[in-house]
Amino acid sequence: MGALKLMKIEALILKRSPLGEHDRLVTVLSRDQGKKRVVARGAGKMVSKLSGLIQPYDRVQLDLWRGRTLDGIRGGEVLESFRGLRDDFKRIIYAACMAEVGEQLAQEENPDEPLYLLLLTCFRGLLRLKKMDLVLLFFIIRAMKVAGFLPAFETCSRCGAHFRGDVQFDLASGQVICLECSEGRGRMGLESASRVLLQSLRGVHPRELNTISCDPQRCRQLRETMLDFAEYHLSRPVKSRRFLDILD
């Protein structure tokens, strides 16, 4: 019998779901190995030490054993607890929405440190800031940028003209088009103030998110537009999206 192969990973817990009666299938976004699905044996039992280690949104270090199909959790430690995200209904929903988009954008065993750091920053932002809609908007814009869809908000992607008034957002390209160039489907109207807000969110440092002002109505509209943008490229609905409507 060969020696048990072990490894350590640093990861954010995205999701855990039942696997059999007592085991849990845990989806994590690791810093070095991208998205991973690992098994936590016996984590469904009240006395299991692993159950506290695989709480959603926590930053953890996991000791894994190599399995034939799935790796398993042997132990580890919580590096940064995001308990505050699990104790507040609003924060649970926003964190779930980010975790779901992050999970869909990440690829299995494909290292994606920028996405990992972005999600970590946004979880911290959700804990710290009251403007959760802005944190979600920031996350989606940056996550789509990390995934290769760079939304541009400064000039018309067709004619290059600088914008003066209302514009259209093209879901397919993630570009903004002036009304003169606008034609066809898959485009959503953007008021001038909304475009300016998206533009500032694209360049802002996460620490400065609190300095950006946005009325709740505009934030909600932009949130819907950006989620449409994400869904278009993910080719699947963001399931947690309907919970945001409950909060509204």
């Binding site: 649970i92 929903i93 975790a99 399931k239 947690s240 309907r242 919970f243 409950i246």
Partner: peptide, 10 residues
């Protein structure tokens, strides 16, 4: 139970 990521709502 409610599960946002699985789309299980009220």
């Amino acid at each position: 139970v409610l599960s946002p990521m699985d789309g299980i709502g009220p």
